[in-house]
Design a protein around this nucleic acid. Structure first.
Length: 763
RNA sequence: GCCGAAGUGGCGGAACUGGCAGACGCGCGCGACUCAAAAUCGCGUUCCUUCGGGAGUGUGGGUUCGAGUCCCACCUUCGGCACCA
C-alpha cells in the first residue's frame, strides 16, 4: 500500500505509471503445503492466488490487472524455458556434478530449510542428512562476476551493493602448480604468493579429486572416516572460525615448486571444494587458520616475511600468525625483496619457470538451477542416446508440467516416476529419448517477471519489444534486503546475459532499488500459518475501510524496517480520516473578515509547508511522516475553523489541497469528498499541488539562547535577523542578563536562524 | 564465527547537513457533553525536583562551543552467510 501511494503521487505529478502485480507461484512452499493438506499443488496455488487477488483488490491499489503475470501459467513458463534454451545454446548453461543435501531415508533431496538443527537431520524423518553428488544444470553467472561488481549505473542501497560485492568476493593473487610425488599437479590459488617459501604442508578439501590417489593404505581408514564426517557438515559449520581445527594426514607428499621441498598433504574441512581450486598451500607463519592447524598437529612453522617493526620471528615460539606484509626472508633467491615488490617479483619468478601466474579469483559460484522437485518449470532438455543433450525445439514449448503425478514424497523426482511423461523422441533423429526430469529454481522465474509485465499475453516472444522500448528499465523497485545476494543478483545477471544475447538492451534491469521491511505478526515473528500469527487485513478493511488500512500501513511503521502488527495504532488513522470527513463537509461559515487576515496567512503558510514536506517524503519513501504531515494540516484547518476562518477563501484552498495531498493515501474517501464538493471527477486525475516558497516562508522564528550549550531562553525574532542583531537580542534576554551577571562571554556562537550560544565556562 | 541493519517515553515512531530531543499518533489521567455509556471535543502526559533547576536517545570512553547524529570499544535484537586461502 505505501508504494501504491507513491505510484498515485507520481501519476498526479504527470507520469505514466505502471504498477503491475504478479505471483511467483512455483516453489517449495506450495509443494510442502500441498503435501501437508493432501491437495494438488496446482489447485492449492491457484486457490491461494484467488484469495490474495481478492485481498489485494480490497486495499484499493492501482494495480493494472491486465498486466498480471503468474509464473506457473504455461503461457509464462513457456518463456522461462525459452530463456533456458537460449542460455543452453550460447554456453551459458551447462551440466556438472554437484552435491545436494540428501535424506537417505526419504531418498530425496532436501532444501536448506528442510535440514534441521546442529546435527543436521531431515525435517520429516529426523534421519541424519548426507551430501550426495548429482548431475545438475548451472548458469555461468561467474562469467559476469567482474561486471556485476560495477554499480555505477544504478541507485541501489549501500548495504545491498556491499552484500553483492562481498558475495562476488574478488581477490587478486596467483595460481601456483604444486605436484605430488607421483607428478600429479595440485594447483592452488593464493593471495600471498610472497609467502610461498613458507609453505610447510598442503591441505586439500576432503572432496578433492586427488585425495583417493594420495592416500596411503595405512591412512585410508582415517581419511575415509574423515571424508564421511565432513559430508555431514554444512558450509557454515565447516567455516566457523571459533571451531577447533580438524583434519587428517593422507600419508601422501607434494613438492613445493620453488624449493623442491617435500611437504605432507593433509585434508581438512576448512578447505572448501567450491572456493579456488579446493586445495591450499599452508603457510602457518602468516595465516591464522594454517597456524592453528599446524600447532594442533605439530607441523613446522617457518616465517618468510619480516614486516617492519617486527623482530625476527621464531617459528617455534610464535603464538599467532603474522599476516602483515613485509620483506621476504628465508626465501631462496628472492630473500631480501622489499614488501612493495614481494608479490610482483614472486609472480614474475613463477611465470619465468612455468610454475604459475597471476590470477584473479572470485568466491561467486555458478548458479545451480536444477531442482529435484515437482512444482517448477520443467527443464526443456531431451537426452538422446545418440545426440546427448538436445534442447526442445522452440515451437514445441512449453514442456507442460503434467498434472497426474504422485507429488507426495516417495523418494524420487516426481517427474521421473510418471509412467509416460519422460518418454519422448529426439528432436534430431526421432528415436526414443528421455526428458530431463528436474525442474528449474524459482529464482529463474523471478529473474525476468518484470519483462513479462510488459505484455503478459504476448506470444511471439517473452515480451513485446514495443512495450519494452517504452517502459524499460524499471525506474523504481522495492523489496526486502534479504534478497540481496539471491534474487537481486540473479536478476542483474539475467539481464546482462539477455543483453549479450541481443534480447534486452541496457546494462541494468532496475535503476532504483529501495528496501522494504516486513510486517510481522503481533508476536514480532514473521507471519506464517504454522505459527498461527497471520493477521489478514480483511477484518480491518471490513471494520474501517481500505483507506484506514492503507493509512495504517503507512503511518505505523518505518517502511524500511517493518515491525509487528499492532492493532492499537489503527485508532489514530481512523480518527484522522473521520475528522477529515467532517471537517470537509462542515466547512461553510461566516464570510471573511479583515480581523482574520493574519490567521488566514498562517493557514496558507501551513498548507504550503505541508505540500513541500509531503511531496519530499513521498519521494524519499518516508511514508509515516507523509501521514503525520497530513494529520498536522488537518489539525491546523480544524483550529482555523474554530478561530472563525470557516468562510475565508484560505479555508477553501486549504481543504482542497488537503484532499489532493491525501488522495494517494486515502483514494476512496478523498474521491468521495472531492465529488461532494462539486469538483470534477476524478481527484486522481488532478495535478499535484504546486509548492510556493513565498507563501511557505516564515516571518518569525524562535531563537534558542544557550549558555555553555544549555538552553536558557527562547526568544522570538524576525526570520531575516542578522548575526549581530541576533547576538544583541540574545544578550538582552532577561535570563541571560541574570545568569551572565555581568561576566563577559569567552566566545559567542551564532547559528543564523537557530541559536546563540554564550561560552563562559572555563576550559 | 563473519558480514549487514537497528537500539530514542508505557507503546508505534519524529528529529534533513552536528544546533530547541520526544513532531504525529496510540495508551493513560483530568475535564466538557450524557440519566448513563460509547462516540466526540478540551487540557495534561520523558524522569527526578526543595520549582531555582537537574538528569536523559542500549553501555563505557572520546572529538566539539554544542552529539540521538561523528570517532573508538562493548552489549542486545533482527537479517544474511562463505574459516575465502
Amino acid at each position: 500500500a505505501p508504494s501504491d501511494a507513491r505510484g498515485r503521487y507520481l501519476r498526479m505529478r504527470g507520469y505514466n505509471v505502471m504498477f503491475p502485480i504478479g505471483f511467483d507461484a512455483f516453489g517449495l512452499p506450495a509443494e510442502n503445503a500441498a503435501i501437508q493438506r493432501n491437495i494438488h499443488p496446482k489447485e492449492w496455488t491457484y486457490k491461494n492466488i484467488d484469495n490474495m487477488r481478492r485481498q489485494l483488490r480490497t486495499i484499493g491499489a492501482m494495480f493494472d490487472w491486465r498486466r498480471e503475470a503468474i509464473s506457473c501459467d504455461p503461457g509464462y513458463y513457456r518463456w522461462t524455458q525459452w530463456f533456458f534454451i537460449r542460455f543452453f545454446q550460447n554456453d551459458l548453461a551447462y551440466k556438472k556434478m554437484a552435491p545436494v543435501d540428501w535424506c537417505p531415508h526419504c531418498n530425496t533431496t532436501l532444501a536448506r530449510e528442510q535440514v534441521i538443527g546442529e546435527n543436521r537431520v531431515c525435517e520429516r524423518c529426523k534421519t541424519p542428512v548426507i551430501k550426495k553428488d548429482l548431475e545438475q544444470w548451472f548458469f555461468r553467472i561467474t562469467r559476469y562476476a567482474e561486471e556485476l561488481l560495477n554499480f555505477e549505473a544504478i541507485d541501489w542501497p549501500e548495504p545491498v551493493r556491499l552484500a553483492q560485492t562481498n558475495w562476488i568476493g574478488r581477490s587478486e593473487g596467483a595460481r601456483v602448480r604444486f605436484t605430488t610425488e607421483a607428478a600429479d599437479p595440485i594447483e592452488v590459488f593464493t593471495t600471498r604468493p610472497d609467502t610461498l617459501w613458507g609453505a610447510t604442508f598442503m591441505v586439500l578439501a576432503p572432496e578433492h579429486a586427488l585425495v583417493k590417489k594420495l592416500t596411503t593404505p595405512q591412512e585410508a581408514k582415517a581419511v575415509e572416516a574423515y571424508v564421511h564426517q565432513t559430508l555431514r557438515e554444512s558450509d557454515i559449520q565447516r567455516e566457523a572460525a571459533d571451531k577447533d581445527k580438524t583434519g587428517v594426514f593422507t600419508g601422501g607428499y607434494a613438492l613445493n615448486p620453488v624449493n623442491g621441498e617435500r611437504i605432507p598433504v593433509w585434508i581438512a574441512d576448512y578447505v572448501l571444494p567450491t572456493y579456488g581450486t579446493g586445495a591450499i598451500m599452508a603457510v602457518p607463519a602468516h595465516d591464522q587458520r594454517d597456524f592453528e592447524f599446524a600447532r594442533k598437529f605439530g607441523l613446522p612453522v617457518r616465517p618468510v616475511i619480516l614486516p617492519p617493526g617486527v623482530e625476527a620471528p621464531d617459528g617455534t615460539a610464535m603464538t599467532e600468525a603474522i599476516p602483515a606484509y613485509g620483506a621476504m626472508i628465508n626465501s631462496g633467491p628472492l630473500s631480501g625483496t622489499p614488501a612493495d615488490k614481494a608479490i610482483e617479483r614472486t609472480i614474475t619468478y613463477l611465470r619465468q619457470r612455468g610454475l604459475g601466474d597471476k590470477a584473479v579469483n572470485y568466491r561467486l559460484r555458478d548458479w545451480l538451477i536444477s531442482r529435484q522437485r515437482y512444482w517448477g518449470a520443467p527443464i526443456p532438455i531431451i537426452y538422446c542416446p545418440e545426440h546427448g543433450q538436445v534442447s526442445v525445439p522452440e515451437d514445441q514449448l512449453p514442456v507442460l508440467l503434467p498434472d497426474d503425478i504422485e507429488w507426495r514424497p516417495t523418494g524420487e523426482s516426481p517427474l521421473k516416476l510418471h509412467p509416460t511423461w519422460k518418454n519422448t523422441t529426439c528432436p534430431i533423429c526421432s528415436r526414443p529419448a528421455e526428458r530431463d526430469t528436474d525442474t528449474m529454481d524459482t529464482f529463474m522465474c523471478s529473474s525476468w517477471y518484470h519483462l513479462r509485465y510488459l505484455s503478459p499475453h504476448y506470444d511471439q516472444g517473452p515480451f513485446d519489444p514495443a512495450e519494452y522500448d517504452y517502459w524499460m528499465p524499471v525506474d523504481a523497485y522495492t523489496g526486502g534486503a534479504e534478497h540481496a545476494t539471491m534474487h537481486l543478483l540473479y536478476t542483474r545477471f539475467f539481464h546482462k546475459a539477455l543483453r549479450d544475447l541481443g534480447i534486452a538492451e541496457g546494462h541494468e534491469p532496475m535503476l532504483q532499488l529501495r528496501n522494504q521491511g516486513q510486517i510481522l505478526g503481533p508476536d514480532g515473528l514473521r507471519m506464517s500459518k504454522s505459527r498461527g500469527n497471520v493477521v489478514a487485513p480483511d477484518s480491518l478493511v471490513k471494520a474501517h475501510g481500505a483507506d484506514a488500512l492503507r493509512a495504517y500501513l503507512m503511518f505505523a511503521y518505518r517502511w524500511q524496517e517493518g515491525g509487528p502488527w499492532n492493532t492499537g495504532n489503527v485508532q489514530g488513522v481512523v480518527r484522522w480520516l473521520n475528522r477529515m470527513w467532517s471537517l470537509v463537509l462542515g466547512a461553510a461559515g461566516a464570510p471573511p473578515s479583515p480581523a482574520h487576515s493574519e490567521k488566514a496567512k498562517g493557514l496558507r503558510r501551513k498548507v504550503h509547508q505541508t505540500i513541500r514536506q509531503v511531496s519530499a517524503d513521498l519521494e524519499r519513501f518516508e511514508f509515516n511522516t507523509v501521514v503525520s504531515g497530513l494529520m498536522e494540516l488537518t489539525n491546523a484547518i480544524a483550529e482555523a475553523r474554530e478561530a472563525g476562518l470557516a468562510g475565508d477563501p484560505a479555508m477553501a484552498g486549504a481543504i482542497e489541497t488537503l484532499l489532493l495531498l491525501a488522495a494517494p493515501v486515502a483514494p476512496h474517501i478523498t474521491e468521495e469528498l472531492w465529488s461532494r464538493l462539486g469538483k470534477p471527477y476524478s481527484i486522481h486525475n488532478q495535478a499535484w499541488p504546486q509548492f510556493d516558497p513565498e507563501v511557505a516562508r516564515v516571518e518569525e522564528i524562535t531563537l534558542v539562547v544557550q549558555i555553555d550549550g544549555k538552553v536558557r531562553d527562547r526568544i522570538t525574532v524576525p526570520a531575516d535577523i542578522t548575526e549581530e542583531q541576533a547576538r544583541e537580542a540574545a544578550l538582552a534576554s532577561p535570563a541571560v542578563v541574570r545568569l551572565l551577571a555581568g561576566k563577559e562571554p569567552r566566545q559567542v556562537i551564532v547559528v543564523p536562524g537557530r541559536l546563540v550560544n554564550f561560552v563562559v565556562g572555563d576550559q
